[in-house]
Each structure stands twice: as structure tokens, then as C-alpha cells.
Simulated scan of single mutants.
Amino acid sequence: MTGSSAALSGASLSAEGVEADFCHDGDEAYEYLLQDIYDVCCLDRMLPHTDGLTLLRKARAAGVQTPVLMLTALSRIGDRVDGLDAGADDYLAKPFDMRELLARLRALARRPAPFSSHTTVRTGTLTLDLTQLTLQGPTGIVGLSRKECDLLETLMRHPGQLMGRSVLLGRVWGMDAPVEEGSLDSYIHFVRRRLKTVGAKETVSTVRGAGYRLEASSC
């Protein structure tokens, strides 16, 4: 849930047995969506920092497939078309009845997940096989653990982009998993060893206190 309307409906969602995370600006919402762990997202069009349309376009371009219900006070046909073209699955104009909001959320959650035939991720000199849990580079191929694969997948899908620690922890271990911060650093160390083993030209750089980035080596 994003935006001011999210805070107003939190109690109603809880009463209906809906578990929700809340964020209050577009930048925070984008980090949440990148984790790709939600059944559905309610997205306010008017958000601070990054507006809902821009956020949604970025998320879809990054491969996020979470169903999105866009909420907005703008109800003209052109506004609805803009929202749907940006990647929204449904559109609800304010003011709305909470019963309709809940019904639309249930409808989106019932939709089958989109089928993807892509079992490999390719970035630069690297090929990651998500089914076989292997990483291939210029000089060889190496097996991975499930967490190593999930971590590499997240980094490889966003090359050159800073991935925050919270995003990586949520993507690999889950939002509410009881995991120590140091576990992420340990797995980054493992991933760096795998990259070296296959002769990759890519490296994982550290942005102290913020997160990690996969980027081409300067060597």
C-alpha cells in the first residue's frame, strides 16, 4: 500500500485478514516492489519524490510482475488509460467504498501468476541458470546454493544499479525472516568467490551502509 489512502485503510485491511506493508513515498515503494514478494500492490498515483506512474513504469521495466491496483483522484478516461498503459492491472478512482477496494484486491490476487519460460538470466559475461542452479562465465561453470542463486539473480537483473540491503534481504530470505544482517555479507562473499571461479568480468561492489551493486570490472 502506498500513499495517504493506505494509512486510512490499514485498519479495514487488517479487519479483513489482509497483511500489508505500507510506504509513504515513491522511492520507498519502488524498493518494496523490487522484492517481488507481494500478492498485489495498491499504488497511489500522487506520491512524493517519485509519482505512481513513473514508479510503475520503472518496476515493470525491471521485471516486476506483481499485480497493481492504482488508486487516484484523477478519474478521466485519459487518466485511466495512462495508468493502464504504465502497467497497472486495475484502476480505482477516489473516493471509493472499502468493500469495492477489497473485492478488487481479491480479484487480482486470484489471477494466476504469469507463466515465464525464462530459466536463465544473462548479464555481460555471465549466464545464470535458475533451474540447474549454475553460474557460467568465460572460464567455466560452477554450482550454486539456492540463496546464492537468488542473490545473483537479483543483482544480475539490475546491473549497475545499487540494490539496498533491505531489498536483498527481503528478496533472498523474505521480509519477515529472522535473519542476521551479517548473513547478507557472508553470501556476498560467497558470490564474489563464484564470480572469480568462472572468470567473470563483473564484480560486486560495496556501497558502505547502503547495499551492493553488480558492475563490470575496470580491469
Rank of each mutant, 00 (worst) to 15 (best):
L126S: 13
S9G: 06
L43G: 03
P112Y: 06
R45M: 11
A86V: 10
V64D: 01
S4N: 06
K201E: 15
C219M: 13
W173S: 08
L84K: 00
V40K: 06
L152W: 04
L55W: 11
L55S: 02
A210I: 02
D25Q: 01
S218K: 14
E180P: 01
A210T: 03
M163H: 02
A93N: 02
M70K: 00
Y32L: 15
V40E: 03
L168V: 06
L43H: 02
T197C: 01
F190N: 13
A210Q: 11
L168S: 06
G160V: 06
K58G: 00
P138F: 03
D36R: 14
L135G: 10
S145A: 12
P95W: 06
L56R: 04
R194G: 05
R157E: 11
R106W: 10
L214D: 11
S145F: 06
L162R: 01
R171H: 14
S5M: 11
D36H: 06
L13K: 13
A15L: 04
A177R: 02
T50G: 00
R213D: 02
T123W: 08
L74G: 03
V172N: 01
R165V: 12
A11L: 09
D185L: 08
A216C: 12
H118D: 15
D129K: 01
E16S: 15
L155M: 12
S75W: 03
R165T: 12
L130F: 00
C149G: 04
Y32K: 14
L74Q: 14
A86Q: 04
A20T: 12
E100F: 05
T119K: 13
D36C: 14
S14V: 09
L151Y: 03
A86K: 04
G63F: 08
S116F: 13
E202M: 07
L34G: 03
R171S: 08
V81M: 09
R193M: 13
A62D: 14
A61G: 05
V179H: 03
L130Q: 02
R157L: 15
D82S: 15
G209W: 01
L47N: 01
T127V: 11
H24F: 09
R76L: 10
E100C: 05
D21N: 09
A109S: 10
L47S: 02
V142D: 09
S217K: 04
W173M: 02
D97Q: 10
G10A: 12
S12I: 05
L184Y: 06
L155Y: 06
K196S: 12
E16H: 11
S218V: 09
L102H: 10
F96M: 07
F96Y: 15
R165S: 12
V179F: 01
A73R: 08
L105M: 14
L56T: 12
R111N: 08
S205R: 08
S75N: 10
S117I: 03
L130R: 14
L69I: 04
L13R: 14
A177F: 07
